[in-house]
Design a protein around this nucleic acid. Structure first.
Lengths: 226, 226, 226, 226
DNA sequence: AATGAATGAGCGTTCATTCAT
DNA sequence: TATGAATGAACGCTCATTCAT
């Protein structure tokens, strides 16, 4: 498992909410299925997820998988929801631990994200989320919600470092920072060609975003180009 | 089709190389299949691509699809290759037209990418490419090659604006810029929640990257953090 | 079914070993499929065996056939194994009932085989086995095993009638006898042109093999010809 | 090619009759197809024969194969006919060269057959013929015809060695001998487990059949058993 | 004589889903 | 909860066959 060491955390796993009631046997099966699905998603991609393969991985019967998840859409959504929830939780946990001034927090934010995209799970899962979000409104909304929450932290930092920006301007700057970091997944994620340059990229990101946040003015953002 | 207007270009379509020979009927079928596949990919995602659906879309028989593409892997690879080639071509065409000094070129680069991710095709296709590249070495390599080519332009601009960086440093900066732009696809692409803020994002990107490229020093990149 | 009358037996059917457990519905389906496959093999030859035709014959769905037999290879091997096993069983049962001295046993052996090749099933199945064995090592081995077992009886008879032969010589004589009988399948089997002469052929075989076994000497077998 | 040495001959190839007229180009394609089909039959069995695979093997187009053979049945029949014809020819050629008294001729016959079943082609082709003959009347008839012709030789030998048998008795004895030899294909053919014992089997066969032919009497054949 | 293109059926296989037990 | 059995559709793919060129 990944350590919860403050500096080199990774944001992972599944957050499963449901059925605290009753038989714990049931809960076991439920979680087993979601974890098997996650493994399939990470190891072989979305198309590898099927009731049959899940059943085989869980050493149970196909019919029993459909006992827990009536339809595949049901399964996929609960899986992605659990994945996203775990990211939300982990991210919140890590960021709230840090109370060292906005610049250090920005640094921390970049560090957390860089460490996270380095993991196999994040590198594999996020592109699938982005692809699925393009054709499934439910997932699109859930993904957006996740990013909305993640940006709350950046927004706070910007507010402290650059209070004169309007809400929209600030939020757009936050989005730009968040999107930049996400973009790195494809190039510097797990086993990606630029993985070896993550330290450099982290430095560039910290420098760039700090400068950006501290120096940008409304007129720069509002500027109209021909 | 998409315009080739210098400023607001969209990089699209398929670049199909093959078969100048033989019956034109054949070429028609071949292209028809690739375009139908692209439409399925864009409209419904990768999983929607099947020989049967393609055949239906082309109003031909399943067997005839396999006449042109022996296996599905064959089809997918030729499709993605054609997609990627068209991006390479369009990008090269647009960037080579611009001869106005490095800063204006950087501005131009950002503009081109922002315009491109705004298109339905790019917004839909790229996340699929990223997801597929995670589980298909052939596609991974082809995607990487495309980005390698795209960064040549950025590298030239950086060399002019900041000649003292080493090759690796410069290339890492170029990658950071490219990745940042790609990351925007998911948030500000076609029908995405931040699509309305693309003008702001463009301004932020231009400002940020110009500053980055002009001011960054080797020591900033090489810095070692605890 | 075929009678088990001691003299004019026919060696047939399928010997199915598996699944005493579980629902009897399952066992039914399993046997139903194997019998349908056997019928197709006998009626129309190996190439007629397909999941779809089996499903139709069993009045079930294609998917359900693959529920019982994961792959076609699986089905074919279990089918041929069941066929071969039934032959082994029947042959053993008949031959062990006979305790009347070696010459009468040899007579009995010839009779059993002649009766067997007269059946539709044997006439149709064995050439398929021989053909399949040429290109499938698994089947080749299983067929060989069956014949090995069948020759045990002949070997015993030869040992009694002609004790001075070496092991290898005796086994080769046994093989010659067995092969001769098998060869008759193609000419005097079910609906074959020489079917009407089976009584004559039986007499010839009995006479020939009895003479052979009683009179052959090592030097006859070892003889070197130019 | 196989030698035509008198003693160790092998009976092979295809006898192609048709189209002596016109373009020899056409004849080339025709023969090429039949030989490719034979190779497929020998190498991978009957089920491997398809227009597509033949076309690939001949480096020609599928459509062109159907130019020569309108239907697959057409092809199969002409192929098997050519195979059978070649056996008939070769057998006739070899046996007519031998003029050394009936016993030596019987020896020669056994030798020829034993040598022939040792070949890859015969071992692979004959079981396919037997299997196909069970479900195709045309092939059945052609195979029967081949064997009828082959037995002419044996019949002559028997007539000389044992003139008192009736026609039917003699023919049945001849059939028994022929069938015995054919049966050996499955056990002592090319790469078969008893291939190493072919010399022994030849001795046994010669001895057995010589005795049989010389000593058998009508009453032995006509005998009625309970 | 030969090719390229197309059809329509069938293949083995996998799938999501249902349901009685 | 869990299994075994079954359905019906779709999948990638190969096939024999046809036909205009």
């Amino acid at each position: 498992m990944e350590g919860i060491d403050v500096e080199s955390i990774t944001v992972k796993d599944l957050k499963i909410t449901r059925r605290d009631e009753g038989y714990s046997r049931g809960r076991e099966g439920y979680e087993q299925i979601l974890h098997a699905s996650l493994n399939l998603l990470v190891d072989e991609g979305y198309k590898a997820i099927s009731f049959r393969r899940i059943a085989k991985a869980c050493d149970m019967n196909v019919g029993n998988v459909t006992y827990y998840f009536k339809t595949k859409e049901d399964l996929i959504r609960q899986l992605l929801d659990a994945i996203i929830s775990s990211y939300e939780d982990e991210f919140l946990k890590i960021m709230t631990l840090t109370k060292r001034g906005p610049e250090r927090q920005l640094e921390k934010y970049v560090t957390v994200i860089i460490n996270d995209i380095a993991t196999r799970k994040t590198t594999r899962v996020f592109p699938e989320l982005w692809a699925l979000a393009n054709h499934d409104a439910f997932i699109a909304e859930r993904v957006q919600e996740m990013y909305d929450r993640a940006r709350v932290t950046i927004n706070k930092i910007i507010t402290e470092l650059n209070p004169e920006l309007s809400d929209e301007e600030r939020e757009t700057v936050a989005l730009f920072i968040s999107a930049s970091m996400e973009g790195l997944t494809v190039f510097a994620g797990y086993e990606k060609p630029w993985a070896g340059n993550r330290a450099f990229l982290k430095n560039i990101a910290i420098l760039t975003f700090t400068n950006l946040v501290k120096t940008i003015r409304s007129k720069d953002i509002q500027k109209i180009r021909s």
